[in-house]
């Protein structure tokens, strides 16, 4: 079957089998390997992308369900002029990543959390990171990065 959607601003159409997950579509069909797969049960959050502006787990959506949607992956988060998105920059500045595997999903979730809950408390941030597992950082610096990234996003008026 054919699916069409916009990925990182580019229109794409492909012929896929119905059971193709959005993760498989992004990784195997489009070569966008920044979206990672860390589990089979939809819990680790490494595959988080933006679907029509909201954070979703690409392993828990069929490519077919994204028909006509606007998809943004970690590769398309920054504005394309070579600078990091403020949230990406904050993760580097606050050492919010170690092995980097959960990081793309963590950053994509973080951006949506800031958009959903501006000025969130530490408790709100921690509770809403429930869908992203990190085995390296103990989350301390991820929480710091999220707050600093939120400030950066506010400064730039983007999200």
């Amino acid at each position: 079957m054919n699916v069409s959607m916009t990925v990182n601003g580019r229109s794409v159409t492909a012929d896929v089998d119905p059971p193709t997950l959005l993760t498989e579509f992004l990784r195997d069909h489009l070569g966008l390997t920044g979206t990672h797969v860390g589990c089979d049960t939809g819990q680790c959050g490494s595959c988080t992308i933006h679907l029509d502006g909201r954070a979703v787990k690409a392993c828990s959506v069929l490519a077919a369900q994204a028909e006509g949607a606007r998809v943004v992956t970690i590769e398309g988060l920054a504005d394309g002029n070579g600078d990091l998105h403020p949230m990406q920059a904050a993760f580097r500045e606050e050492h919010g990543l170690q092995c980097g595997f959960c990081t793309p999903g963590m950053v994509m979730a973080a951006v949506d959390l800031v958009n959903t809950y501006p000025n969130a408390s530490d408790t709100t941030i921690r509770e809403n990171l429930e869908g992203n597992i990190c085995r390296c950082t103990g989350y301390e610096n991820i929480v710091r990065a999220l707050k600093s990234g939120a400030a950066g996003m506010g400064d730039q008026g983007n999200g």
Partner: peptide, 8 residues
Amino acid sequence: FLTGQGRY
């Protein structure tokens, strides 16, 4: 790692 260019 932050831009999806890690190579696992």
